[in-house]
Amino acid sequence: MARPRVFDVDKAVETATDLFWRNGYEATSLADLTAAMGITPPSFYYAFSSKYGLFKRVLEHYTTTRLSYAEDALNQPTARDVAEQTLLRLVDLYTDPTRPPGCLIMNNALPCNENSTPLHRELAGSRAARRARLCDRLIRAQTDGDLPADCDPDGLAGLILVVGWGLAFAAQSGATRDDLQRTVATALKAWPS
């Protein structure tokens, strides 16, 4: 009969979130993970199947606990408010002093070609899905007359995401919250009126 698990899986996922966010997927070893979680490799494999299995749990955790705040900006009343709140909420996330700087997803997307591993394909799919949600919201704004008929909702969704990714890299490189907020204000000057 299998022994019951003697560690808190949610706490282990939170610990792994910090490690992957700080070090990246490639640079975080099984030894790093098990040492930080205080578990043995057999317990690790029993709970998560693999490092990739754990990382998928980390992504779910990060998406529901961190990115949901930025994702909720899609509910803002105007398209400009959606863009502004998405970016400002990302600034808050990327500069939270209790977390590593930048974005867990972007910190893990860079080390190799996005199509080289299942992990990178999944991260690319996540970025594409986020762009599609933004685009759908902006199309709705255009249909409602909140955006000019001649603007490009997909291009605007791309602008929001590219600025957001740039904010993540800037935060990781030491930019302050004030620096990033000024960047958002400058980027929003390009928003169609």
Rank of each mutant, 00 (worst) to 15 (best):
M1T: 02
A2Q: 10
V6G: 12
A12G: 13
F20K: 07
G24H: 03
A27S: 12
A27H: 14
L30P: 01
L30V: 13
A31C: 01
L33D: 04
T34Q: 09
A36S: 06
M37H: 05
T40P: 02
T40Y: 04
P41F: 04
F44R: 09
S49Y: 07
K51S: 01
Y52T: 09
K56L: 13
R57V: 05
V58G: 08
E60L: 05
H61P: 04
Y62M: 02
T63Y: 00
T63L: 11
L67I: 06
A70S: 09
A70D: 02
E71T: 06
P77K: 07
A79S: 14
A79Q: 09
A83M: 00
A83L: 01
T86Q: 06
V91L: 12
V91N: 11
V91D: 09
D92M: 13
D92P: 03
D92C: 08
T95W: 12
P97F: 00
P100Q: 02
P100L: 15
I105G: 00
N107S: 14
N108D: 15
P111T: 09
E114A: 09
T117C: 12
R121Y: 00
R121C: 09
A124E: 13
G125S: 13
A129D: 05
A129W: 07
A129V: 02
R130W: 13
A132R: 12
L134C: 08
L134D: 02
D136R: 06
R137G: 01
R137N: 01
L138Y: 10
I139E: 15
R140W: 11
A141M: 08
L147Q: 12
L147Y: 09
P148R: 10
P148M: 09
A149I: 10
D150Y: 02
D150G: 12
C151N: 01
D152V: 06
P153M: 03
G155Q: 02
L156W: 11
L161H: 02
L161P: 04
L161G: 07
V162D: 07
W165V: 08
L167M: 07
A171C: 07
S173L: 10
S173Q: 12
G174M: 08
D178P: 07
L180I: 01
L180T: 02
T183E: 04
A185M: 10
T186W: 01
A190W: 07
W191Q: 10
P192L: 13
